[in-house]
Write a protein that binds this DNA or RNA. Structure first.
Lengths: 341, 341
DNA sequence: AATTTTTTGAGGTACGCACCTCATTTTTTG
DNA sequence: CAAAAAATGAGGTGCGTACCTCAAAAAATT
C-alpha cells in the first residue's frame, strides 16, 4: 500500500495539519519541522495521490491552444485533432479551448496572448513564428505563472517551458538522404518548393536537406527555393520558368504546406519528367498522393501524438511533476505507401 | 461542471442508492427504473469520474506481462521498458509484474498462464508464439474475466482482446521497397537472415519483403532465408556458402533478432561487397550500426509506445471504456541515421 | 517573568464515488 | 385481501487529499 498523508504525519511525529501545510507550502511552519516532514516523505517514498488531490481541489486544468487560422490541410488537421483530443481530455479534468489567430500578424497574436493572462488559464500552447512581440507576451505569461509550450514550430529564444515537435534540420536531412538514395545514381537538379521561407521550419528543413545533398554536388544540384506566398500564379510562373531553364529536373522537395497546389502545377511536367517527390506532413492530400504514387515519401510527425503530448507536458508543468522524455519525444516519421496505416 | 451521481438521481427522480445500484449493476432494481436512470445519464451526459471511483474502491489494477526470457537485445530492451513503465504506472494505481518464460516451451507458458487465473490479476499481456496450448490457456483466462492482450507478436486465432504491435507483412513490404530503392538500379541477390522462421513475425516480414521485390525479379533475386536457430556456426557456414555460390550479393535483410551476430559474420564479406543492410528493431546494436553506417535502415516499432499502449488497453478493457484507436495504433517506423534521435 | 508572536494540533467539511445497512414503500403472489 | 417478496429510500462510512477554524503549546520578545 502506498503511504498516505497520515502515515507521514505519524512518521514525522507531527499532526496532519502540519503535513498539509508543508505539502501545500502554506506558511507558519518552522524550518526544522519542514525538514522533518520532508525527511519522512523521503523515507516512506510518499507521492501525492494526484487524482485524490485534484478531486479535493475540485480542480480543472484550463488550457488554451493558440493556433493559426490558415486553411492548409495541416493546419486544419491540427485544429481538428485538438478539438478531438480536447473532447477526451474533459474526462481527465482538462478544459481545453482553442483561439485562432490570423497568420502573419504578430501584434494580434501578442494581444491575444496578453489577454490570456488574468483569466484562469493555467497553460498555453502556441504554434506561431517567433517575433519580439511574441517573446514579450510569453515572458508576460510566464511571469504570471502560466505554463507555455510551443508545438510544431519551436520558439527557442523565449521563456517557454517546452517544445513539442521535431528537429526540422534533422527532418530536412532525412528528406535529403532519402532523395539521394531514391535517385539512385541519376544526376540532375532538384526543385525545392515552399510557401514562404519566413517560417523557421522551412528554413531549417532546407538547411538540413542541402547538408545531406552537398556531398553529391555537382551530380545533384539543389535549386534555390521557389516561394509562392499564397499566390498560385506566382508559383506557376516560377515552376514553368524552372522547367524551361533546366531539362534535367529529377526531384522535388516541398518543405511545407501547399502540396495540393504543387501537385496540380507539377502535373503537366510529370508526364515527361520522372520525379522523386518528397513532401512534409501527412495530410489527406499527401496520403492520397502516396497511395496514388505521385508522392514518394512524406516526412511527418504524428499530429495526434503532438497534441496529446502537449497536454501531458502542460499538465506536468502546472503540477510540477516530471515529464517522461521518452514518451514526449516526437519522432521524425518517414512514410511510404507501404507503411501507411 | 460535470454532472455527478447526485444530479442524475435528482433528474431521474430516484434516490442516490438506486443510481448507485444501476451504475454498478447491483441487483434489486426494476427494468423501468433502470431505464429511467439510464435516460437521465444519457440526457445529462454523465460520465463516471473514474479517478474518484477508483479512489473510493481503493482499486489497484493488477497486470502481468508474460515475456520470453531470451537474451536478444530486443527482448532485453522490452523487459527493461516494461520495468521502467511499471515504475511510473504505480502512480496511476497500476501494479505491473513480469513473468519470464523460457522460449519454445508452450507447455510451460500454458502452465504459467493458467496459474495467473484465480489470483487477483485483472489483465495479462503476452508476447509468445501461438500454439494450441496457448490458445486454450487464453480462453481459460478470458472465461475467468481476465483481460488478455498480445504485444509485438500477434495471437490472431485466440480470444485475446487486442493486439499491440505492427502489421509485419506491411513492415516486410516496407523493407522490400526500401531495399529496392536503396539499391538504385543494381542487379544481384539479396540475403535474408533470420534466427528461426517458426516465429510468425519472421514469416510475415519475409512474405511482405518478397511481395515488394517480386516485380524486380530477376534483376533482383531474394535468396532463401538462412536460419541459425541459436547456432552461430550454422549461420557462419551458411553465410559463407551463400557468398561462395553467388558473387553478386548486393543486399542483406535481417527479419528478426541476431543483428549483433550477423554483423560480425558479415564483416569479412563487406569489405569486398557493397551491401544494403536492412534490419528490424531498433536496439543498442542496430542504433550504433546505423550511426556507424553498417546498417542502412532499421524498420522498428517504438517499444516504449508498445508497452504504454498495452497498459492503456488493458486498463480500458477492465474498465470497459473505449480505446483511442489513433493513440494505440503502433506505427511502422523507418529509421535512418538521419532521423535517429 | 510576563507578554506577544509564532507554531502546532485537533477537528471538521468537502470532493465524487462505492458499498453497506435498515426501514419503508411498492409490487407480486397465494 | 393479507402475506410475502421485491424495490426503493435514507443515511452512514470511507477512499486520500485540500482547506478551514479555533484552541493550545511553544518560541521569541520585551
Amino acid at each position: 500500500m502506498r503511504p498516505t498523508v497520515n502515515d507521514i504525519a505519524r512518521a514525522a511525529g507531527v499532526s496532519l495539519a502540519t503535513v498539509d501545510r508543508v505539502l501545500n507550502a502554506r506558511p507558519g511552519v518552522r524550518k526544522v519541522t519542514i525538514e522533518r516532514v520532508n525527511r519522512a516523505i523521503e523515507e516512506l517514498g510518499y507521492v501525492r495521490d494526484l487524482s485524490a488531490a485534484n478531486l479535493a481541489r475540485r480542480r480543472t486544468y484550463r488550457f488554451v491552444f493558440v493556433l493559426p487560422e490558415g486553411d492548409s490541410q495541416f493546419q486544419r488537421a491540427l485544429r481538428e485533432t485538438v478539438e478531438e483530443v480536447a473532447r477526451h481530455a474533459v474526462r481527465e479534468r482538462m478544459a481545453v479551448n482553442t483561439v485562432l489567430v490570423p497568420p502573419g500578424d504578430p501584434h494580434h497574436l501578442a494581444r491575444v496572448l496578453h489577454g490570456l493572462e488574468g483569466g484562469d488559464v493555467e497553460g498555453v500552447a502556441i504554434m506561431a513564428p517567433e517575433t519580439p512581440h511574441v517573446r514579450d507576451a510569453i515572458r508576460h505569461l510566464k511571469e504570471h505563472g502560466v505554463a507555455v509550450v510551443s508545438l510544431v514550430s519551436d520558439l527557442p529564444n523565449t521563456e517557454q517551458d517546452h517544445f513539442v515537435g521535431i528537429d526540422n534540420i534533422a527532418a530536412g536531412r532525412t528528406a535529403g538522404v532519402l532523395m539521394r538514395r531514391f535517385l539512385g545514381g541519376s544526376s540532375g537538379k532538384i526543385l525545392v518548393l515552399g510557401n514562404t521561407m519566413i517560417l523557421r521550419e522551412s528554413v531549417e528543413r532546407r538547411l538540413g536537406f542541402d547538408a545531406a545533398l552537398i556531398e553529391c554536388y555537382p551530380r545533384i544540384e539543389v535549386l534555390p527555393s521557389i516561394e509562392w506566398r499564397d499566390d498560385p500564379e506566382l508559383l506557376e510562373r516560377n515552376v514553368r520558368a524552372a522547367f524551361a531553364s533546366y531539362d534535367n529536373i529529377i526531384g522535388v522537395y516541398v518543405t511545407g504546406s501547399g502540396n495540393r497546389l504543387f501537385s496540380r502545377v507539377l502535373a503537366p511536367y510529370r508526364e515527361e519528367h520522372e520525379l522523386v517527390y518528397i513532401a512534409h506532413e501527412l495530410t489527406e492530400h499527401t496520403r492520397a498522393a502516396l497511395i496514388g504514387g505521385s508522392i514518394d515519401v512524406v516526412i511527418t510527425q504524428d499530429i495526434g501524438h503532438v497534441v496529446r503530448s502537449t497536454l501531458r507536458v502542460l499538465r506536468a508543468k502546472v503540477d510540477r511533476t516530471e515529464i517522461d522524455a521518452a514518451q514526449e519525444r516526437i519522432r521524425i516519421d518517414i512514410i511510404l505507401k507501404e507503411n501507411l496505416t
